[in-house]
Structure formats: C-alpha cells, structure tokens
Simulated assay, not measured.
Amino acid sequence: MRVTSFHYFLRTAILLGFSSYIVYLVRSDALQFYIAPRMMFYDKIASVILYVIAVFQGYVALRAYWGRPVACECEQPVTRSSMRNTVAYGLLILPLMIGFLLPDTALNSTMVAAKGINLSAGTSGFAKPKVTSAAELISTPSPTAISSDNPYNLPSQPKPATSDKTTPFAQPTAAPEALPVSQQDAEIAKLFQPSDAWNEDFAKIGVILYKKDRIVVDPEIYMEILSTIDLFKDNFIGKQIELTGFVYREEQMETNQFVVGRFAVSCCSADASPYGVLIDFPTAQNYPKDMWVKVTGTIQNGHYNGNDIFKIAATHIEKIAAPSSPYVYPNFEPLQVLK
C-alpha cells in the first residue's frame, strides 16, 4: 500500500506542478511567449481541470496510505518496474523543471537563423483576412462615369500638362479638375485587381492603404499589411511606411542592410514563423541583432537571394523598448483596425 500511495502522491505533485505553472505564467504575463491569445482561455481552463484531478489523486493517495484504497477495478495497476516508472515520470517532470528553472523569454534571432527569415509575406498562407463586401470600402460609379482617358489620374499622381501639337510652341493648359470622390475611389480600385479569389481580400485592404499618406504597420494587422504590400508592391513604390520589429542580420547581407522582423504565431510558439522586411540604411551595422527599432522610410523594389521583394529605404531608425507582446497573430477582421 505504501508503494501505491507513493505513486499517487507523485502524480498529485506533478499535476499540481503543471497547474501551478500555468497560473504562474498567467500572473507574470509570460503565457503570451508560448501560446496565442485566442488559446489562453483554454489553457486557463486546463489549469483548473488539472487542479481538480490533482485533488482527487491526493485523496486516493491518502486512502491508500491509510490502508483504505479506492477500488473501482477500472484503473491500470501500478507497474513495479523501476525503469518504466523512471522514464514515465521523467517525461513529465523534466519539462516541468525546465519551465520553472529557465527564464521566460520571447523568440529571437537565434530561432530565426534556425528557421530562416521570410521576406515575402504575400507568398505565405498565414494571413487570410475575412473582410466585408467591397461596397463598404469604395463607392464605385457606373462604368460610363469612369473616364477612359488616363485611368490612373489619381490625387497622388496629378495629370501632367499637355501641349497643342498644331502650334510650334507648347501652350499651357489649365489644371485638370479634381475627380469626384466616388470616381477617385473607382480609379484607385483599378490599381488593385486581384489575380484570384485568394488575393481579392488583400486587394480591398490595398485600396485603403493606398489612400494613406504614410502606412503605419500596426502589429495588430502586421501580416495582413505586409502581405498586401508584397502582393501589390508596384502600387506602393515610393510610399512612406513605418514599422517596428527586432533586428536580424545574415552573413551575406551588405553592411548597409538588415531585416526588421517579427514572429507570426497562429496557435503556439511551436508554429511561430519569422517574417520581416529588408532595410537599407547607411549605418545599418550600428544596430545589433535582437535590438528593437522603429523604422521610417519609403517602399522600394528590392532583390535578395534571387527573389524579387520590397524593401524599405530608411530615413530614420529609432531604438525602442521591446513590446510587452512581441509576437503578431492572424487578424480575421483587419478592416476594423484600418477604419
């Protein structure tokens, strides 16, 4: 009975350990380093369930110690093999000890080097927004209301003056009248024609981003914005952009280059994937790996490892403190953030 009681007491301690560890992570705000916010509720429920099971195991252990075991004839007998017991309990105790003894830190450039950085967010399947209808984004007039003369006559791209070819001298012309707001939106929409159903949602996001004087990459919709720019990068060349992330650098990069990246997490840290943007800056070598920075610059075409990507020609880089929530997660309602 004493041997059986020992096994139940050990199981009680292990279950209480896991339950307590989850509580510790929640109270220290370190749970976000391991799982996505949408999964935290289930983890908290699991801690309660583990605690209840631990209490029952403790009750069974005490009954066995007092010589009054709970017999339901439905449980697996305790094995007497020391090797099997050591391996079985060791597989549970070892990760629990690692969790309590090692510091809770976010993933960094060491993990990026192991997984490899992705500089083409549009080719990933991570960001798949669920957006509302196009009617809520743009007010599209009838086809007859859209001018066929220079369809890209947009507010940010004024129409150049033309000359009268019937005279030997160029004649100045009056500035073209501004297009009605609805027609401007329709002309902008022409720039974002999706190639398939997958890109349709990103095209709608692109319409909104195109109208902004500066694109601020909000961490809440980090992947959705980068994916949109990557898919329609020709429309954003020369556009001002601002984003934050940690510095990552590879050996083959030039001295004026580094990557500003973040880990995108769908469920937990096990499926974390590093994404980032290549940065060009004259003094890029002054920024060490894993430093958190805020980069401001303009979007340009770039090439890296034989791939066509977009890069940022930085005009200002500011060192910042690491955010309390360093990862980014999929957002299925990005338009609610953009509005």
Rank of each mutant, 00 (worst) to 15 (best):
F310A: 04
W66R: 15
R68D: 12
V217I: 14
T173L: 08
V78Q: 11
L243M: 12
T228R: 01
P288E: 05
P160F: 11
Q257Y: 06
L92T: 01
A175I: 06
G99W: 05
L335G: 10
P103Q: 05
A88L: 14
A88N: 05
S273V: 14
K239Q: 12
K212V: 00
T144A: 14
Y89C: 10
W66L: 15
I93R: 03
S142R: 15
K190Y: 07
Q171W: 01
I45D: 00
S156Q: 13
T79Y: 09
D29T: 05
K190T: 06
D149M: 02
Q57G: 00
F310P: 07
V52C: 09
D280G: 07
A314Y: 07
Q76F: 12
A322T: 12
Y42L: 15
M97H: 00
P155Q: 11
V70W: 15
T4H: 04
N256T: 10
I317N: 05
V131C: 02
Q57S: 10
Y152N: 13
P143D: 03
H7A: 10
L96K: 06
T166E: 08
Q252E: 12
K233N: 11
L16Y: 07
A114Y: 02
N286V: 00
P172I: 08
K239A: 11
M40L: 02
I22G: 06
K211A: 13
V60R: 15
T110A: 09
I14V: 15
L191M: 12
S156T: 13
D230W: 02
M39L: 15
L179V: 08
A175D: 11
K204G: 12
H303D: 08
S147L: 05
N305F: 04
A174D: 09
A203G: 15
A106V: 10
I221E: 05
N307S: 13
F246L: 11
Y42P: 01
R80Q: 14
F169T: 13
S82F: 12
A127K: 02
S124D: 08
D104Y: 06
I299F: 06
K130N: 09
I215V: 15
M291D: 14
G238I: 08
G99T: 05
A121V: 10
Y287M: 05
Q240H: 13
Y59T: 10
S142I: 07
I221L: 03
G90F: 06
A314F: 05
E75D: 10
R249F: 04
A54N: 01
A174G: 01
K289P: 00
R84Y: 06
Q193T: 14
F236L: 08
K239E: 04
Y21V: 00
R214T: 15
F236M: 08
P69Y: 07
T283V: 02
V26D: 11
T110M: 08
S148L: 13
F6E: 00
P103S: 07
C267T: 10
K44D: 02
Y275H: 15
T298L: 03
Y89A: 09
V259F: 04
R80S: 14
G238W: 07
W292L: 03
T105Y: 12
P288K: 06
F263I: 07
A175M: 05
Y59S: 09
